[in-house]
Design a protein around this nucleic acid. Structure first.
Lengths: 275, 275
DNA sequence: CGCAGATTTGAAAATCGTCAAAAACCGTGG
DNA sequence: CCACGGTTTTTGACGATTTTCAAATCTGCG
Protein backbone atom coordinates (compact mmCIF):
# COMPACT_ATOMS: atom_id res chain seq x y z
CA UNK A 1 0.00 0.00 0.00
CA UNK A 2 1.36 3.34 0.94
CA UNK A 3 5.08 3.68 1.17
CA UNK A 4 7.70 6.28 1.68
CA UNK A 5 11.17 4.92 1.96
CA UNK A 6 11.41 1.86 4.16
CA UNK A 7 9.36 2.87 7.11
CA UNK A 8 6.35 0.62 7.34
CA UNK A 9 3.25 2.24 5.97
CA UNK A 10 1.25 2.12 9.16
CA UNK A 11 4.14 3.34 11.25
CA UNK A 12 4.77 6.28 9.05
CA UNK A 13 1.15 7.12 8.77
CA UNK A 14 0.41 7.15 12.46
CA UNK A 15 3.62 8.99 13.16
CA UNK A 16 2.76 11.60 10.61
CA UNK A 17 -0.76 11.83 11.89
CA UNK A 18 0.37 12.46 15.42
CA UNK A 19 2.92 14.98 14.24
CA UNK A 20 0.49 16.88 12.11
CA UNK A 21 -2.15 16.81 14.79
CA UNK A 22 0.19 18.20 17.40
CA UNK A 23 1.46 20.78 14.95
CA UNK A 24 -2.11 21.84 14.38
CA UNK A 25 -2.72 22.03 18.09
CA UNK A 26 0.34 24.17 18.63
CA UNK A 27 -0.80 26.60 16.01
CA UNK A 28 -4.07 26.82 17.84
CA UNK A 29 -5.92 26.87 14.58
CA UNK A 30 -9.63 27.21 14.40
CA UNK A 31 -11.31 25.25 11.65
CA UNK A 32 -13.40 27.20 9.17
CA UNK A 33 -16.88 26.20 8.15
CA UNK A 34 -17.72 27.01 4.55
CA UNK A 35 -21.11 26.75 2.86
CA UNK A 36 -21.35 25.21 -0.62
CA UNK A 37 -20.30 27.20 -3.65
CA UNK A 38 -18.06 29.69 -1.88
CA UNK A 39 -14.71 30.90 -3.14
CA UNK A 40 -12.07 30.63 -0.46
CA UNK A 41 -9.14 32.05 -2.37
CA UNK A 42 -8.51 33.41 -5.83
CA UNK A 43 -5.85 32.96 -8.43
CA UNK A 44 -3.25 35.64 -7.94
CA UNK A 45 -3.88 36.12 -4.22
CA UNK A 46 -0.87 35.97 -2.01
CA UNK A 47 -0.47 32.35 -1.02
CA UNK A 48 -0.04 32.32 2.72
CA UNK A 49 -1.98 29.32 3.91
CA UNK A 50 -2.56 25.67 3.23
CA UNK A 51 -5.85 24.06 4.11
CA UNK A 52 -6.43 20.65 5.59
CA UNK A 53 -9.82 19.29 4.64
CA UNK A 54 -11.78 17.76 7.47
CA UNK A 55 -15.08 17.28 5.69
CA UNK A 56 -16.75 18.22 2.44
CA UNK A 57 -15.42 18.44 -1.08
CA UNK A 58 -13.77 21.42 -2.73
CA UNK A 59 -11.95 22.06 -5.96
CA UNK A 60 -9.17 24.20 -7.33
CA UNK A 61 -9.84 25.82 -10.67
CA UNK A 62 -8.47 28.29 -13.18
CA UNK A 63 -10.42 30.80 -15.19
CA UNK A 64 -9.61 31.67 -18.77
CA UNK A 65 -9.96 35.15 -20.13
CA UNK A 66 -13.19 34.28 -21.92
CA UNK A 67 -14.82 32.90 -18.80
CA UNK A 68 -14.29 29.24 -19.48
CA UNK A 69 -13.01 27.26 -16.59
CA UNK A 70 -10.83 24.27 -15.88
CA UNK A 71 -11.10 22.43 -12.61
CA UNK A 72 -7.64 21.35 -11.80
CA UNK A 73 -7.96 19.20 -8.71
CA UNK A 74 -10.69 17.84 -6.48
CA UNK A 75 -10.15 18.04 -2.76
CA UNK A 76 -11.68 15.51 -0.41
CA UNK A 77 -11.51 14.97 3.33
CA UNK A 78 -7.94 14.34 4.39
CA UNK A 79 -6.44 16.26 1.50
CA UNK A 80 -4.02 19.13 1.76
CA UNK A 81 -4.90 22.11 -0.39
CA UNK A 82 -2.38 24.56 -1.73
CA UNK A 83 0.82 22.58 -2.08
CA UNK A 84 1.23 23.87 -5.60
CA UNK A 85 1.40 27.42 -4.26
CA UNK A 86 4.53 26.67 -2.24
CA UNK A 87 6.61 27.23 -5.32
CA UNK A 88 5.72 30.86 -5.79
CA UNK A 89 4.51 34.03 -4.19
CA UNK A 90 0.99 33.86 -5.47
CA UNK A 91 -1.70 31.31 -5.74
CA UNK A 92 -1.94 29.72 -9.15
CA UNK A 93 -5.60 28.79 -8.93
CA UNK A 94 -8.81 29.60 -7.12
CA UNK A 95 -10.47 27.43 -4.52
CA UNK A 96 -14.18 26.80 -4.18
CA UNK A 97 -16.30 24.63 -1.94
CA UNK A 98 -18.56 22.07 -3.50
CA UNK A 99 -20.41 21.16 -0.34
CA UNK A 100 -20.57 22.37 3.18
CA UNK A 101 -16.98 22.00 4.33
CA UNK A 102 -14.85 22.15 7.42
CA UNK A 103 -11.25 23.06 6.68
CA UNK A 104 -8.23 23.88 8.80
CA UNK A 105 -6.11 26.78 7.60
CA UNK A 106 -2.39 26.30 8.14
CA UNK A 107 -0.24 29.37 7.64
CA UNK A 108 2.77 28.48 5.52
CA UNK A 109 4.86 30.31 8.08
CA UNK A 110 4.19 27.36 10.36
CA UNK A 111 6.29 25.29 8.00
CA UNK A 112 9.40 27.18 9.02
CA UNK A 113 9.11 26.11 12.65
CA UNK A 114 11.92 23.80 13.73
CA UNK A 115 9.36 21.17 14.49
CA UNK A 116 8.55 21.10 10.81
CA UNK A 117 11.69 19.26 9.92
CA UNK A 118 12.03 17.05 12.95
CA UNK A 119 8.44 15.99 13.10
CA UNK A 120 6.75 13.93 10.46
CA UNK A 121 5.00 16.89 8.91
CA UNK A 122 7.40 17.14 6.02
CA UNK A 123 6.97 13.46 5.31
CA UNK A 124 3.24 13.78 5.47
CA UNK A 125 3.18 16.71 3.09
CA UNK A 126 5.54 14.98 0.73
CA UNK A 127 3.30 11.96 0.58
CA UNK A 128 0.28 14.12 -0.06
CA UNK A 129 2.15 15.92 -2.79
CA UNK A 130 3.08 12.61 -4.36
CA UNK A 131 -0.54 11.51 -4.28
CA UNK A 132 -1.65 14.72 -5.93
CA UNK A 133 0.94 14.28 -8.65
CA UNK A 134 -0.34 10.81 -9.38
CA UNK A 135 -3.83 12.19 -9.75
CA UNK A 136 -2.61 14.99 -11.96
CA UNK A 137 -0.82 12.56 -14.22
CA UNK A 138 -3.86 10.37 -14.59
CA UNK A 139 -6.11 13.32 -15.22
CA UNK A 140 -3.83 14.57 -17.91
CA UNK A 141 -3.96 11.25 -19.69
CA UNK A 142 -7.74 11.25 -19.57
CA UNK A 143 -8.19 14.84 -20.68
CA UNK A 144 -5.46 14.71 -23.27
CA UNK A 145 -6.16 11.39 -24.93
CA UNK A 146 -9.61 10.02 -24.18
CA UNK A 147 -12.92 10.78 -25.84
CA UNK A 148 -15.84 12.12 -23.87
CA UNK A 149 -17.24 8.74 -23.02
CA UNK A 150 -14.02 7.38 -21.64
CA UNK A 151 -13.27 10.53 -19.73
CA UNK A 152 -16.54 10.29 -17.86
CA UNK A 153 -16.01 6.62 -17.15
CA UNK A 154 -12.54 7.38 -15.99
CA UNK A 155 -13.78 10.01 -13.58
CA UNK A 156 -16.25 7.67 -12.00
CA UNK A 157 -13.59 5.03 -11.56
CA UNK A 158 -11.27 7.57 -10.05
CA UNK A 159 -13.92 8.58 -7.56
CA UNK A 160 -14.63 4.96 -6.84
CA UNK A 161 -10.97 4.36 -6.27
CA UNK A 162 -10.52 7.39 -4.13
CA UNK A 163 -13.55 7.11 -1.90
CA UNK A 164 -12.85 6.13 1.66
CA UNK A 165 -11.61 2.62 1.68
CA UNK A 166 -13.83 1.28 4.41
CA UNK A 167 -17.23 2.23 3.08
CA UNK A 168 -18.17 -0.99 1.44
CA UNK A 169 -20.19 -3.17 3.77
CA UNK A 170 -23.14 -4.25 1.72
CA UNK A 171 -26.58 -4.21 3.24
CA UNK A 172 -29.13 -6.87 2.68
CA UNK A 173 -29.89 -5.42 -0.76
CA UNK A 174 -28.44 -6.81 -3.96
CA UNK A 175 -26.11 -3.93 -4.53
CA UNK A 176 -22.79 -4.12 -2.82
CA UNK A 177 -21.99 -0.64 -1.63
CA UNK A 178 -18.67 -1.41 -3.17
CA UNK A 179 -20.03 -0.28 -6.50
CA UNK A 180 -21.54 2.95 -5.24
CA UNK A 181 -19.96 6.31 -5.62
CA UNK A 182 -21.02 9.76 -4.61
CA UNK A 183 -20.45 12.33 -7.33
CA UNK A 184 -21.64 15.65 -5.91
CA UNK A 185 -20.84 17.64 -9.03
CA UNK A 186 -23.28 19.02 -11.53
CA UNK A 187 -22.68 18.36 -15.18
CA UNK A 188 -21.09 21.71 -15.81
CA UNK A 189 -18.56 21.01 -13.09
CA UNK A 190 -17.89 17.55 -14.46
CA UNK A 191 -17.28 19.15 -17.81
CA UNK A 192 -14.95 21.72 -16.33
CA UNK A 193 -13.04 18.92 -14.68
CA UNK A 194 -12.73 16.79 -17.80
CA UNK A 195 -12.37 19.48 -20.42
CA UNK A 196 -15.83 18.87 -21.88
CA UNK A 197 -18.99 20.89 -22.34
CA UNK A 198 -21.91 20.30 -20.02
CA UNK A 199 -23.91 19.11 -23.02
CA UNK A 200 -21.37 16.47 -23.81
CA UNK A 201 -21.40 15.28 -20.24
CA UNK A 202 -25.17 15.01 -20.24
CA UNK A 203 -25.25 12.98 -23.42
CA UNK A 204 -22.52 10.69 -22.23
CA UNK A 205 -24.15 10.03 -18.88
CA UNK A 206 -27.48 9.26 -20.49
CA UNK A 207 -25.82 6.91 -22.91
CA UNK A 208 -23.90 5.07 -20.20
CA UNK A 209 -27.12 4.75 -18.29
CA UNK A 210 -29.00 3.35 -21.27
CA UNK A 211 -26.28 0.84 -21.89
CA UNK A 212 -26.50 -0.41 -18.35
CA UNK A 213 -23.11 0.71 -17.17
CA UNK A 214 -24.43 2.99 -14.49
CA UNK A 215 -27.57 3.83 -12.60
CA UNK A 216 -28.14 7.30 -11.30
CA UNK A 217 -29.93 8.53 -8.20
CA UNK A 218 -29.15 12.18 -7.79
CA UNK A 219 -25.48 12.48 -6.99
CA UNK A 220 -25.20 8.80 -6.20
CA UNK A 221 -24.17 6.43 -8.94
CA UNK A 222 -24.16 2.67 -9.06
CA UNK A 223 -21.42 1.23 -11.19
CA UNK A 224 -23.19 -1.77 -12.66
CA UNK A 225 -20.33 -3.06 -14.73
CA UNK A 226 -17.28 -2.00 -12.85
CA UNK A 227 -14.98 -4.53 -14.46
CA UNK A 228 -16.10 -3.59 -17.95
CA UNK A 229 -15.56 0.04 -17.18
CA UNK A 230 -12.07 -0.54 -15.87
CA UNK A 231 -11.23 -2.46 -18.99
CA UNK A 232 -12.74 0.23 -21.16
CA UNK A 233 -10.34 2.92 -19.96
CA UNK A 234 -7.50 0.63 -18.94
CA UNK A 235 -7.84 1.77 -15.37
CA UNK A 236 -5.26 0.70 -12.81
CA UNK A 237 -5.99 1.45 -9.18
CA UNK A 238 -3.88 3.94 -7.33
CA UNK A 239 -2.83 3.79 -3.70
CA UNK A 240 -4.63 6.51 -1.86
CA UNK A 241 -3.98 7.20 1.73
CA UNK A 242 -7.19 7.04 3.70
CA UNK A 243 -8.04 10.13 5.63
CA UNK A 244 -5.85 9.82 8.69
CA UNK A 245 -6.42 13.19 10.21
CA UNK A 246 -10.19 13.40 10.40
CA UNK A 247 -11.61 9.93 10.61
CA UNK A 248 -15.09 11.25 11.02
CA UNK A 249 -15.55 11.41 7.30
CA UNK A 250 -15.97 7.68 7.16
CA UNK A 251 -19.28 7.52 8.91
CA UNK A 252 -20.43 10.62 7.13
CA UNK A 253 -20.10 8.98 3.75
CA UNK A 254 -21.83 5.86 4.89
CA UNK A 255 -24.67 8.03 6.10
CA UNK A 256 -24.82 9.83 2.81
CA UNK A 257 -25.06 6.65 0.84
CA UNK A 258 -27.47 5.00 3.21
CA UNK A 259 -29.84 7.91 3.08
CA UNK A 260 -29.73 8.46 -0.63
CA UNK A 261 -30.22 5.04 -2.19
CA UNK A 262 -32.70 2.92 -0.33
CA UNK A 263 -34.90 2.86 -3.39
CA UNK A 264 -32.24 1.47 -5.63
CA UNK A 265 -31.74 -1.65 -3.58
CA UNK A 266 -35.40 -2.48 -3.86
CA UNK A 267 -36.67 -1.56 -7.31
CA UNK A 268 -34.66 -2.63 -10.32
CA UNK A 269 -34.97 0.56 -12.31
CA UNK A 270 -36.59 0.53 -15.72
CA UNK A 271 -33.65 2.30 -17.24
CA UNK A 272 -31.76 -0.92 -17.14
CA UNK A 273 -34.06 -3.05 -19.26
CA UNK A 274 -32.65 -3.23 -22.75
CA UNK A 275 -32.92 -0.04 -24.76
CA UNK B 1 10.78 34.45 -6.21
CA UNK B 2 10.98 31.09 -4.63
CA UNK B 3 9.62 30.73 -1.16
CA UNK B 4 8.89 28.08 1.37
CA UNK B 5 7.67 29.40 4.66
CA UNK B 6 9.65 32.37 5.89
CA UNK B 7 13.15 31.28 5.23
CA UNK B 8 14.67 33.57 2.69
CA UNK B 9 14.71 32.06 -0.76
CA UNK B 10 18.42 32.13 -1.19
CA UNK B 11 19.12 30.80 2.26
CA UNK B 12 16.78 27.93 1.80
CA UNK B 13 18.04 27.15 -1.62
CA UNK B 14 21.69 27.03 -0.74
CA UNK B 15 20.96 25.07 2.42
CA UNK B 16 18.92 22.58 0.47
CA UNK B 17 21.56 22.40 -2.20
CA UNK B 18 24.28 21.62 0.29
CA UNK B 19 22.08 19.08 2.04
CA UNK B 20 21.13 17.30 -1.13
CA UNK B 21 24.68 17.34 -2.38
CA UNK B 22 26.01 15.83 0.81
CA UNK B 23 23.21 13.30 0.83
CA UNK B 24 24.18 12.33 -2.69
CA UNK B 25 27.79 12.03 -1.68
CA UNK B 26 26.94 9.81 1.25
CA UNK B 27 25.01 7.46 -0.97
CA UNK B 28 28.06 7.26 -3.17
CA UNK B 29 25.85 7.37 -6.20
CA UNK B 30 27.24 7.08 -9.68
CA UNK B 31 25.48 9.18 -12.26
CA UNK B 32 24.06 7.37 -15.26
CA UNK B 33 24.61 8.45 -18.84
CA UNK B 34 21.68 7.80 -21.10
CA UNK B 35 21.57 8.17 -24.88
CA UNK B 36 18.54 9.83 -26.51
CA UNK B 37 15.30 7.93 -26.88
CA UNK B 38 15.92 5.33 -24.19
CA UNK B 39 13.34 4.11 -21.71
CA UNK B 40 14.69 4.23 -18.18
CA UNK B 41 11.71 2.81 -16.36
CA UNK B 42 8.26 1.57 -17.28
CA UNK B 43 4.79 2.06 -15.95
CA UNK B 44 4.10 -0.69 -13.46
CA UNK B 45 7.72 -1.28 -12.51
CA UNK B 46 8.48 -1.26 -8.84
CA UNK B 47 9.29 2.30 -7.94
CA UNK B 48 12.51 2.20 -6.00
CA UNK B 49 14.45 5.21 -7.17
CA UNK B 50 14.16 8.88 -7.87
CA UNK B 51 16.38 10.52 -10.43
CA UNK B 52 18.05 13.88 -10.24
CA UNK B 53 18.63 15.36 -13.66
CA UNK B 54 22.06 16.80 -14.21
CA UNK B 55 21.81 17.43 -17.93
CA UNK B 56 19.55 16.64 -20.83
CA UNK B 57 15.78 16.48 -21.12
CA UNK B 58 13.53 13.55 -20.40
CA UNK B 59 9.84 12.97 -20.12
CA UNK B 60 7.38 10.82 -18.23
CA UNK B 61 4.58 9.34 -20.29
CA UNK B 62 1.68 6.93 -20.16
CA UNK B 63 0.63 4.53 -22.87
CA UNK B 64 -2.99 3.76 -23.65
CA UNK B 65 -4.16 0.33 -24.66
CA UNK B 66 -4.41 1.36 -28.32
CA UNK B 67 -0.88 2.66 -28.42
CA UNK B 68 -1.64 6.32 -28.11
CA UNK B 69 0.50 8.17 -25.68
CA UNK B 70 0.32 11.09 -23.31
CA UNK B 71 3.43 12.82 -22.14
CA UNK B 72 2.74 13.81 -18.61
CA UNK B 73 5.72 15.84 -17.56
CA UNK B 74 8.92 17.19 -19.06
CA UNK B 75 12.07 16.86 -17.01
CA UNK B 76 14.90 19.32 -17.34
CA UNK B 77 18.25 19.74 -15.61
CA UNK B 78 17.72 20.27 -11.91
CA UNK B 79 14.43 18.41 -11.81
CA UNK B 80 13.59 15.49 -9.60
CA UNK B 81 11.94 12.60 -11.39
CA UNK B 82 9.63 10.14 -9.73
CA UNK B 83 8.01 12.07 -6.90
CA UNK B 84 4.61 10.89 -8.04
CA UNK B 85 5.68 7.32 -7.45
CA UNK B 86 6.23 7.91 -3.74
CA UNK B 87 2.54 7.42 -3.14
CA UNK B 88 2.40 3.81 -4.28
CA UNK B 89 4.29 0.64 -4.82
CA UNK B 90 4.61 0.91 -8.52
CA UNK B 91 5.53 3.54 -11.01
CA UNK B 92 2.57 5.25 -12.60
CA UNK B 93 4.33 6.24 -15.80
CA UNK B 94 7.30 5.43 -17.97
CA UNK B 95 10.39 7.54 -18.34
CA UNK B 96 12.27 8.23 -21.54
CA UNK B 97 15.23 10.36 -22.46
CA UNK B 98 14.83 13.01 -25.09
CA UNK B 99 18.49 13.85 -25.41
CA UNK B 100 21.73 12.51 -24.13
CA UNK B 101 21.28 12.77 -20.37
CA UNK B 102 23.19 12.48 -17.17
CA UNK B 103 20.99 11.54 -14.23
CA UNK B 104 21.64 10.58 -10.62
CA UNK B 105 19.59 7.69 -9.31
CA UNK B 106 18.55 8.09 -5.68
CA UNK B 107 17.14 4.99 -4.03
CA UNK B 108 13.99 5.89 -2.16
CA UNK B 109 15.40 3.94 0.74
CA UNK B 110 17.81 6.82 1.19
CA UNK B 111 14.84 8.93 2.18
CA UNK B 112 14.45 6.96 5.37
CA UNK B 113 17.87 7.94 6.66
CA UNK B 114 17.72 10.16 9.72
CA UNK B 115 19.51 12.83 7.79
CA UNK B 116 16.50 13.00 5.53
CA UNK B 117 14.39 14.81 8.06
CA UNK B 118 17.02 16.93 9.71
CA UNK B 119 18.70 18.04 6.55
CA UNK B 120 17.09 20.21 3.96
CA UNK B 121 16.35 17.33 1.66
CA UNK B 122 12.70 17.12 2.61
CA UNK B 123 12.31 20.82 2.04
CA UNK B 124 14.02 20.57 -1.28
CA UNK B 125 11.82 17.72 -2.43
CA UNK B 126 8.72 19.48 -1.23
CA UNK B 127 9.60 22.53 -3.23
CA UNK B 128 10.24 20.47 -6.30
CA UNK B 129 6.93 18.73 -5.81
CA UNK B 130 5.19 22.07 -5.51
CA UNK B 131 6.81 23.22 -8.71
CA UNK B 132 5.71 20.12 -10.53
CA UNK B 133 2.16 20.58 -9.30
CA UNK B 134 2.10 24.11 -10.63
CA UNK B 135 3.20 22.82 -14.02
CA UNK B 136 0.61 20.08 -13.93
CA UNK B 137 -2.14 22.54 -13.17
CA UNK B 138 -1.14 24.81 -16.01
CA UNK B 139 -0.83 21.93 -18.41
CA UNK B 140 -4.26 20.72 -17.51
CA UNK B 141 -5.75 24.10 -18.27
CA UNK B 142 -4.06 24.17 -21.64
CA UNK B 143 -4.94 20.64 -22.64
CA UNK B 144 -8.45 20.80 -21.24
CA UNK B 145 -9.58 24.17 -22.48
CA UNK B 146 -7.42 25.59 -25.24
CA UNK B 147 -7.56 24.96 -28.97
CA UNK B 148 -4.56 23.61 -30.84
CA UNK B 149 -3.12 27.00 -31.64
CA UNK B 150 -3.19 28.24 -28.10
CA UNK B 151 -1.86 25.01 -26.72
CA UNK B 152 1.21 25.24 -28.90
CA UNK B 153 1.74 28.87 -28.01
CA UNK B 154 1.29 28.00 -24.37
CA UNK B 155 3.95 25.32 -24.58
CA UNK B 156 6.48 27.65 -26.10
CA UNK B 157 5.82 30.23 -23.42
CA UNK B 158 6.16 27.60 -20.76
CA UNK B 159 9.51 26.55 -22.16
CA UNK B 160 10.55 30.15 -22.39
CA UNK B 161 9.55 30.67 -18.81
CA UNK B 162 11.25 27.52 -17.60
CA UNK B 163 14.51 27.77 -19.41
CA UNK B 164 17.49 28.60 -17.27
CA UNK B 165 17.12 32.11 -16.06
CA UNK B 166 20.56 33.35 -16.93
CA UNK B 167 20.73 32.53 -20.60
CA UNK B 168 19.77 35.83 -22.05
CA UNK B 169 22.82 37.89 -22.92
CA UNK B 170 22.17 39.10 -26.40
CA UNK B 171 24.94 39.05 -28.94
CA UNK B 172 25.54 41.79 -31.40
CA UNK B 173 22.68 40.50 -33.54
CA UNK B 174 19.20 41.95 -33.48
CA UNK B 175 17.66 39.08 -31.65
CA UNK B 176 17.83 39.20 -27.91
CA UNK B 177 18.50 35.67 -26.74
CA UNK B 178 15.72 36.46 -24.34
CA UNK B 179 13.24 35.46 -27.00
CA UNK B 180 14.94 32.22 -27.94
CA UNK B 181 13.86 28.86 -26.76
CA UNK B 182 15.13 25.39 -27.39
CA UNK B 183 12.36 22.89 -28.09
CA UNK B 184 14.09 19.57 -28.68
CA UNK B 185 10.86 17.66 -29.33
CA UNK B 186 9.59 16.41 -32.61
CA UNK B 187 6.04 17.20 -33.60
CA UNK B 188 4.71 13.85 -32.50
CA UNK B 189 6.14 14.41 -29.06
CA UNK B 190 4.71 17.89 -28.92
CA UNK B 191 1.36 16.41 -29.80
CA UNK B 192 1.67 13.74 -27.16
CA UNK B 193 2.44 16.43 -24.66
CA UNK B 194 -0.46 18.68 -25.61
CA UNK B 195 -3.08 16.08 -26.46
CA UNK B 196 -2.94 16.79 -30.18
CA UNK B 197 -2.08 14.84 -33.30
CA UNK B 198 1.25 15.41 -34.98
CA UNK B 199 -0.62 16.73 -38.01
CA UNK B 200 -2.32 19.38 -35.95
CA UNK B 201 0.97 20.43 -34.46
CA UNK B 202 2.54 20.76 -37.87
CA UNK B 203 -0.25 22.91 -39.21
CA UNK B 204 -0.26 25.11 -36.16
CA UNK B 205 3.49 25.66 -36.22
CA UNK B 206 3.42 26.54 -39.89
CA UNK B 207 0.62 28.95 -39.32
CA UNK B 208 2.32 30.67 -36.40
CA UNK B 209 5.41 30.97 -38.50
CA UNK B 210 3.53 32.50 -41.42
CA UNK B 211 1.89 34.99 -39.14
CA UNK B 212 5.24 36.11 -37.81
CA UNK B 213 4.86 34.90 -34.28
CA UNK B 214 7.77 32.55 -34.45
CA UNK B 215 10.79 31.69 -36.50
CA UNK B 216 12.12 28.18 -36.60
CA UNK B 217 15.64 26.86 -36.95
CA UNK B 218 15.60 23.19 -36.17
CA UNK B 219 14.77 22.81 -32.52
CA UNK B 220 15.48 26.47 -31.83
CA UNK B 221 12.60 28.91 -31.97
CA UNK B 222 12.59 32.67 -31.90
CA UNK B 223 9.54 34.16 -30.26
CA UNK B 224 9.02 37.22 -32.40
CA UNK B 225 5.97 38.54 -30.64
CA UNK B 226 6.38 37.37 -27.10
CA UNK B 227 4.02 39.90 -25.60
CA UNK B 228 1.29 39.11 -28.12
CA UNK B 229 1.67 35.45 -27.41
CA UNK B 230 1.40 35.93 -23.68
CA UNK B 231 -1.73 37.94 -24.16
CA UNK B 232 -3.14 35.35 -26.52
CA UNK B 233 -3.11 32.59 -23.92
CA UNK B 234 -3.33 34.79 -20.85
CA UNK B 235 0.04 33.52 -19.71
CA UNK B 236 1.30 34.46 -16.25
CA UNK B 237 4.87 33.59 -15.41
CA UNK B 238 5.61 31.00 -12.80
CA UNK B 239 8.46 30.98 -10.33
CA UNK B 240 10.82 28.25 -11.29
CA UNK B 241 13.80 27.40 -9.23
CA UNK B 242 16.93 27.56 -11.31
CA UNK B 243 18.99 24.42 -11.36
CA UNK B 244 20.84 24.61 -8.09
CA UNK B 245 22.41 21.19 -8.08
CA UNK B 246 24.14 21.03 -11.42
CA UNK B 247 24.99 24.50 -12.55
CA UNK B 248 26.78 23.24 -15.58
CA UNK B 249 23.60 23.23 -17.57
CA UNK B 250 23.76 26.95 -17.93
CA UNK B 251 26.74 27.08 -20.18
CA UNK B 252 25.49 24.08 -22.07
CA UNK B 253 22.34 25.87 -23.13
CA UNK B 254 24.20 28.96 -24.12
CA UNK B 255 26.42 26.80 -26.27
CA UNK B 256 23.46 25.13 -27.84
CA UNK B 257 21.86 28.38 -28.77
CA UNK B 258 25.05 29.99 -29.91
CA UNK B 259 25.86 27.12 -32.21
CA UNK B 260 22.41 26.71 -33.66
CA UNK B 261 21.30 30.18 -34.65
CA UNK B 262 24.07 32.28 -36.07
CA UNK B 263 22.22 32.41 -39.36
CA UNK B 264 19.11 33.85 -37.85
CA UNK B 265 20.84 36.91 -36.55
CA UNK B 266 22.16 37.69 -40.00
CA UNK B 267 19.56 36.80 -42.58
CA UNK B 268 15.99 37.91 -41.98
CA UNK B 269 14.27 34.77 -43.15
CA UNK B 270 11.86 34.90 -46.02
CA UNK B 271 9.18 33.18 -44.00
CA UNK B 272 8.62 36.41 -42.17
CA UNK B 273 7.82 38.66 -45.12
CA UNK B 274 4.06 38.99 -45.32
CA UNK B 275 2.25 35.88 -46.56
C1' DC C 1 23.21 8.39 -53.34
C1' DG C 2 19.82 6.46 -50.73
C1' DC C 3 17.44 5.45 -46.55
C1' DA C 4 14.77 6.37 -42.35
C1' DG C 5 12.61 9.49 -39.82
C1' DA C 6 10.27 13.91 -39.69
C1' DT C 7 7.43 17.34 -41.70
C1' DT C 8 4.05 19.09 -44.76
C1' DT C 9 -0.21 18.93 -47.37
C1' DG C 10 -4.89 17.76 -48.73
C1' DA C 11 -9.37 15.60 -48.35
C1' DA C 12 -12.87 13.11 -45.83
C1' DA C 13 -14.89 11.70 -41.49
C1' DA C 14 -15.75 11.99 -36.65
C1' DT C 15 -16.10 14.23 -32.44
C1' DC C 16 -17.33 17.81 -29.83
C1' DG C 17 -18.93 22.63 -28.89
C1' DT C 18 -22.39 26.07 -29.37
C1' DC C 19 -26.97 27.63 -29.43
C1' DA C 20 -31.54 27.34 -28.08
C1' DA C 21 -35.50 25.49 -26.30
C1' DA C 22 -37.96 22.12 -23.61
C1' DA C 23 -38.30 19.26 -19.69
C1' DA C 24 -37.22 17.85 -15.15
C1' DC C 25 -35.96 18.81 -10.54
C1' DC C 26 -35.84 21.26 -6.03
C1' DG C 27 -36.71 23.99 -2.30
C1' DT C 28 -39.91 27.58 -0.90
C1' DG C 29 -44.05 29.59 0.16
C1' DG C 30 -48.82 30.06 -0.32
C1' DC D 1 -50.85 19.85 -1.50
C1' DC D 2 -49.95 22.66 -5.17
C1' DA D 3 -47.96 26.58 -7.55
C1' DC D 4 -43.71 29.04 -8.57
C1' DG D 5 -38.96 30.47 -9.77
C1' DG D 6 -34.43 29.13 -10.40
C1' DT D 7 -31.25 25.79 -11.49
C1' DT D 8 -30.00 21.65 -13.77
C1' DT D 9 -30.59 18.30 -17.25
C1' DT D 10 -32.01 16.79 -21.65
C1' DT D 11 -32.58 17.10 -26.62
C1' DG D 12 -31.85 18.42 -31.47
C1' DA D 13 -29.61 20.86 -35.15
C1' DC D 14 -25.68 22.96 -36.91
C1' DG D 15 -20.93 24.32 -37.36
C1' DA D 16 -16.17 24.23 -36.21
C1' DT D 17 -12.14 21.97 -34.92
C1' DT D 18 -9.47 18.05 -34.95
C1' DT D 19 -8.35 13.37 -36.25
C1' DT D 20 -7.33 10.07 -39.53
C1' DC D 21 -5.45 8.47 -43.68
C1' DA D 22 -2.35 8.81 -47.34
C1' DA D 23 0.92 10.62 -50.13
C1' DA D 24 4.54 13.84 -51.14
C1' DT D 25 8.42 16.38 -49.50
C1' DC D 26 12.21 17.39 -46.78
C1' DT D 27 16.36 16.43 -43.71
C1' DG D 28 20.21 14.40 -41.70
C1' DC D 29 23.44 11.03 -42.09
C1' DG D 30 25.99 6.94 -43.32
Amino acid sequence: MSRLAEVSPREMRTAATAAVRSALDKCNIQPIRVPPGRDIKHEGDRATTLYLVESGWLYSYCLLADGRRQIVLLHQPGDVIGLADLSGERSICSLRSLQHCVIHPVPTSALSAPSFLTSGVATFLLRKAAEAQAIFARTLVAVGRMDARNRVVWLMLMLHDRRDVDVGISERGEIATDTLIDMPLNQTEIGDLLGLSNVSVSKTLCQLSEEGYIERQGSTIVLRRLADMKRMVDYADLDFEPNVLFQSSRSRIIDTIASSVPEVTQTPKATLSSK
